[in-house]
Amino acid sequence: MPVPDALEFFIDPGRCIGCQACIQACTECDTHKGQSMIQLDYVDRAHSTQTVPVVCLHCDSPTCAEVCPADAIKRTEDGIVQTARKPRCIACNNCVLACPFGVPKMQTKMNLMMKCDMCYDRTSVGLKPWCASACPSQALAFGTREEMARLRPHAKPVNTFQFGRQTIRTKVNIMVPRDAPTDIVDVTASMHEPTIGREILDDVFMERPDGGDA
């Protein structure tokens, strides 16, 4: 059964609190039992608590599938880019290196690439993916556009990304301000921006120059 058209995935990294609930929930998925496909990183571990959760964004024209020499990655009619077909994947790493969002993982021992398939066993029957079900801050959310518009009146979903000269459209949306001047998220333009946070002092008992507490 295909994933219902009305239901979509929305990512808002700015809401992520780094709780790892998505990672734990992801291991429950039947299509990759016991392995988490969520990529959750600290952007700058030493200076910031900013975390970024990334699931597969399911590109319209997936680079991972195009560069696969074994033709192992298939996109279903409902726009889900499935994990590598097990009989075909030759573990070459092309998809891992080529994915513009850094999503696939390589399980060398199994000679197999593994990636998020949006919990196809659940979403194809109208259920929420595990990560979106477990995410307490709804940085990872799954529902209708109407629900999102009601719950997040100041944000809008965008699914077009710019990488240098390459434009990529995806099935999964990322949330940007409703009045943002653009409907394209230019990833490479912000690539060298430092993380957002506060300076953390090494010595927490040290007095700050402005007289405040560390």
């Binding site: 808002d12 990294p13 700015g14 990529q39 990183d41 952007v43 700058d44 200076h47 910031s48 900013q50 970024v52 990334v54 891992v96 290196l97 994915c99 513009p100 969002f101 850094g102 999503v103 100041h154 990304f161 990322i174 949330m175 940007v176 301000p177 943002a180 653009t182 998220v185 230019d186 990833v187 490479t188 333009a189 912000s190 690539m191 060298h192 921006e193 430092p194 993380t195 957002i196 946070g197 506060r198 300076e199």
Partner: peptide
């Protein structure tokens, strides 16, 4: 791949700058 994921967050964060708080750390 790690920096690609971080870049996605930075690009989204740049669009929210001035609306959600937080300060960019020194470059």
């Amino acid at each position: 791949p790690r920096c690609r994921r971080a870049s996605l967050a930075m690009a989204q964060g740049a669009l929210w700058r001035g609306r959600r708080g937080g300060t960019p750390l020194p470059d």
